[in-house]
Simulated scan of single mutants.
Amino acid sequence: MRGYDQADITAAVEKHWGAISAGQAEDKLKEIRRLEKALNPKVLAKADLRNGRKIYQSTCFACHQLFGEGMKLGPDLTGSNRADTKYLLENIIDPGSLVGLDYQLHTIVKNDGQVVAGLLKEKTADALGIAVIGGGQVTVPVSGIRDHKVSTTSMMPEGLIANLTADETRDLIGYLQSPRQVPLPVVGEIQVGDDQLKVAEVNRGTVQKQNMEGFKADSWSGNSHLWWTQGQTGDRIVIQFESAEEGPHAVSAVFTKAHDYGIFRVKLNGATVVENIDLYHKGSVITTGDVSLGSHPLKKGLNQLVVELLGANPAATPGKMFAIDHLLLVPE
C-alpha cells in the first residue's frame, strides 16, 4: 500500500491496520533470505520439537500464546500463518514492519511520575486498561494521566534469535510450525528415530521407510516413519534398536494412525508392554503422540520390539497397516 506513495491511502491503512514501516532494511532482508534458504524442509525435518518448545518458553512465552501456553500480550500464534517459514522469519527478524493498532506501544506517565508501558486493552471515559509484559493488566484513571504517547514501534524486540545456534533456530522454527503440542524435553532422554530402527524379522508383507512430508495434519521426526503393509491377522514384525547403557528406562513410542491401520500388541524384550493399541483414525493421517510403554530394563546394545497384528477396527478401511515414528528412552 505504501508503494502507491499517496498520503490519503497511507493514512487510511494506518488508521485501520496500524503503522507501516517505510520498508525493510537491506540487512534484515538479507538475513530473512539467508535463514529461509537455510531452513529448508529437509533441515526442518530434523528439528527437535521438544527442544524448540523449551526455547519458545524462554523467548516467546512472555508475550505470545501457542497451544494455550504463554501470555496474551501479543498475538496468539496458534492460528497464525506459522506453517510459512518466510512469514515467521519476517515477523521475528523485523517485527516493526507492520504494527497493528492493537499492538502499538502505549507509554503513560501518571501524575505521580510512575510510568506504565504496554498495550491498550480497554478504554472508557474514565480509565485505560494497559496490558503489561508478564500477563498483568494495569488500570490507569484518565484523571491521573500526565502524559500519554503512542509509539508505532513494535513491543516485540529485534534480535530474538540472533544469539541462537543454527540448531536452536531450526528447533524453534520447527516447533512454531508444529501442528500439535509436544512434551518438553527430559534430561538424558534419547530419541531413536525410524532410521535407527532395524527390522530383524517380518513374516509377511513389506516394511519400508515412508516419506510423510505430504501429510500436513501432523508432523513426524525426520518427516518419515517405518511402515509395515500387507500384514495379516496373526503376523508380526521384529524391530531392533540400540541402547547406549544397561538399566531401567522409561520407554515411550510415537505411532501413526490412519483410516486403514490395524490393532496391535507390542512387546519389549519379551514382555507385553501394550496389550492392544487401535491405530484406526477416521480422516487425516496423524500420530498418536507419545504412548508410554512403561519402565523396563534395557540391555546395553540391541533390544527388541515385537509388534503383533491382532486385527482391525470394524470402521477401518481394509489394510491393517502399522507405522512407528520413533522411540524415546529416558534412563532412570
Rank of each mutant, 00 (worst) to 15 (best):
Q104D: 06
L105E: 13
G79W: 00
G79M: 06
S143Y: 00
L98R: 13
L120P: 07
T139F: 04
R82K: 12
V132H: 05
E90F: 02
K123P: 00
E122Q: 15
G118Y: 03
V115D: 06
G134E: 01
I133Q: 12
D112H: 12
R82P: 00
V132G: 05
Q104N: 02
Y87G: 01
V99N: 10
P95W: 07
V140Y: 06
D76Q: 04
T107P: 11
S143C: 00
V116P: 10
P75C: 09
G79H: 06
Q114C: 04
G118L: 02
L77W: 06
D102L: 12
L119Q: 09
P141I: 05
D76N: 14
D102S: 14
G118H: 05
N81M: 12
A125T: 13
G135Q: 11
K123C: 06
Y103R: 11
V142H: 06
V140N: 07
S97I: 10
A117L: 04
R82N: 11
G96M: 03
I130K: 02
S143I: 01
P141C: 08
D102G: 11
N91M: 06
T85A: 04
S80T: 13
I92D: 07
S80Y: 01
A117Q: 15
G118T: 09
N111P: 07
K123Y: 08
Q104V: 10
G129L: 04
I133K: 12
Y87N: 08
K123M: 12
V99K: 06
L88H: 02
L128K: 06
T124N: 13
P75H: 06
T139N: 07
V140W: 02
V132M: 09
Q104M: 13
I130N: 02
G96F: 08
I92R: 04
I130E: 00
L89R: 09
S143T: 14
D76G: 08
Q104Y: 03
D94L: 08
G100C: 04
L89M: 06
V142M: 14
G136W: 00
L89H: 06
N111I: 02
H106E: 11
V142S: 09
D126P: 01
Q137F: 00
P75G: 10
G96T: 13
V116F: 11
V140P: 01
K121D: 13
V109M: 14
N81K: 12
Q137A: 10
I130V: 13
L101C: 12
Q114F: 01
G135R: 14
G136M: 05
L105N: 11
G136Y: 00
G113F: 07
D76L: 02
V115F: 05
I108L: 15
V109S: 13
D94Y: 15
G134P: 09
T139V: 14
G113V: 02
N111M: 02
H106S: 11
G129R: 09
A117P: 03
K121C: 00
D84W: 00
V109P: 10
Y103M: 04
V138H: 01
L88F: 01
A125P: 04
V99C: 07
L120K: 15
V138C: 02
L128F: 09
P95V: 09
D94K: 08
G135V: 15
P95I: 08
I130M: 09
G135P: 02
K86E: 14
L119C: 05
A117T: 15
N81W: 07
G100D: 05
S97E: 13
H106G: 03
V140G: 07
L101R: 15
D102T: 10
L101S: 10
A127Q: 12
T78F: 05
I130C: 06
A127D: 11
D84I: 01
